[in-house]
Amino acid sequence: METIIILLVGVLVSTATYLLLSKNLIRVVLGTAILSHAIHLLLMTMGGLKMGSVPILGDQVDTYTDALPQALILTAIVISFAVTAFFLVLVYRTYQSTGSDNLYELKGPQDE
């Protein structure tokens, strides 16, 4: 199971890299969002997927699933949500003020 997820992470990371390298700003934003998902998935897989039961002390169970990676990705998801939202708004604002969403046209200022 872990192997499949890791392969999926690989696919997501390569997609994200492809998008990040494109000229279009919206694709770049989507690239960062997909990269964040890939890494969340990796973080969860690193703790081992469902090795035991719910991490609550009980009588019958003796192996527990590690709850920490889930707490970590929950935090990371919130952060990635905030960052992506901010980045999207910024890209839209830049589009409004410069009239372009092409990274090559947003190169450094010409006045130097």
Binding site: T32, S36, H40, T94
Partner: peptide, 23 residues
């Protein structure tokens, strides 16, 4: 705004790499 996009993009990317290292 245009410089901000570069700054933010590079920092988002490095943040996710940081998380990758943590994982």
């Amino acid at each position: 705004l245009t410089e901000g996009i570069k700054y933010i993009l590079i920092n988002i990317l490095s943040s996710w790499l940081f998380l990758l290292g943590i994982a």
